[in-house]
């Protein structure tokens, strides 16, 4: 293989171009979904409320990955590390410094933003498979780092930390689970609106320009290095918030809850939901929470195989994830209206 150079034909990208208008839901649909999210918890059992809370939390984490991959075209298998940092920040602040749980969330968002931004710096030199390996290394290192001896006083080592669940404030007549659900919902809505607006802003357009063609973007005057690291920072910050909420909801943090398996699940959630389609993040989150349980109930011994087969079915039927279903639905509605 003597040729020193190889020319790669144009138009070969890892992440497909999604126009920014196709990244969100219409106003009407959004309001219906919001109403359902507000009303449903009043009529179901506490366990289902808990599962809905987890759905929102994983949805946020997938959304964060979606901004990074679907928005700026960078691939990450290290989201579990940012999730862990967020979870531990909240747990340590609540248990050691007695800070109110709601206040720990902006703090962990800030810490994770900084961490992600700094991690994005060396990652600038890497792309594609190489970036995947670097983020993967971060994900495998994180549980080991949390177990380190000199951190044990703060992190509780292998045993982890138990987090107290907050009560509903102002004497509201709500169970802890329900309060936490509404709290998570409020945070989720805020972050969702922030993300949608971010992608519609100048910065969002810069992300997408980099995703679609880095060289063209930089020749148009986009500061590629700045926006790439910024995308990492924002994504890490949102993942950190998800981690904090996760720690409060599960009431427990331990190094082994945040292994590479979590990062892979989040990745699968993004693919199933549709890369670059923000509402799909929550569909993807539903997939990674409920399908493994479903597989377990179909066959205990073969649960992994059943999960794999279901995943194959999904990617055969809709290779572009839930976004494809939404687009089909939209076209169908459009046709019906014309008739």
């Amino acid at each position: 293989m003597s040729a020193a150079e190889e020319v790669v034909a144009e138009g070969h990208q890892a992440v497909e171009a999604v126009p920014k208008r196709a990244m969100t839901l219409g106003t009407g649909t959004s309001l219906v979904v919001l109403a359902a999210l507000l009303v449903v918890p009043m009529f179901v059992k506490n366990f289902i409320i808990f599962q809905m809370t987890m759905l929102l939390i994983y949805g946020l984490a997938v959304l964060a990955l979606n901004i990074l991959t679907g928005g700026s075209g960078q691939f990450s298998l290290g989201q579990s590390a940012f999730y862990a940092v967020g979870a531990y920040t909240s747990a340590v602040l609540m248990e050691h410094a007695n800070i109110n749980y709601a206040l720990t969330i902006p703090i962990s968002a800030a810490i994770c933003f900084g961490f992600g931004y700094l991690f994005g710096k060396p990652a600038l030199r890497l792309s594609g498979v190489y970036l995947a390996l670097a983020t993967f290394a971060l994900a495998t290192a994180m549980p080991q780092l949390l177990k380190l001896n000199f951190l044990e006083h703060w992190t509780g080592g292998v045993q982890g930390l138990v987090v107290t669940k907050p009560d509903a404030p102002f004497g509201l007549p709500m169970s802890q689970d329900m309060w936490l659900y509404y709290f998570t919902l409020a945070v989720t809505i805020a972050i969702y609106i922030f993300s949608v607006n971010l992608l519609r802003s100048r910065s969002g357009r810069a992300f997408m320009a980099i995703r679609d063609n880095e060289i063209a973007a930089s020749s148009m005057g986009v500061n590629v290095a700045l926006y790439k690291t910024l995308a990492f920072g924002v994504s890490a910050g949102i993942t950190g918030v998800a981690g904090s909420l996760g720690a409060i909801a599960v009431q427990f943090v331990a190094p082994d809850s945040y292994t590479i398996t979590l990062a892979i699940s989040l990745f699968l959630g993004m693919v199933v939901g549709g890369v670059g389609w923000l509402p799909g993040s929550f569909v993807g989150a539903a997939f990674i929470i409920f399908v493994p349980n479903m597989a377990e109930s179909i066959s205990k011994g073969l649960s992994g195989a059943v999960f794999g087969v279901l995943l194959f079915l999904v990617i055969y039927l809709v290779p572009h994830g839930a976004r494809q279903v939404a687009v089909l639905g939209q076209q169908l509605v459009g046709k019906l209206r014309k008739n």
Binding site: A14, I264, F267, M270, V271, V272, F312, I315
Partner: peptide, 9 residues
């Protein structure tokens, strides 16, 4: 990325 999900499956 869909192919990668296929490998995981």
């Amino acid at each position: 990325l869909t192919n990668v999900a296929g490998f995981i499956a």
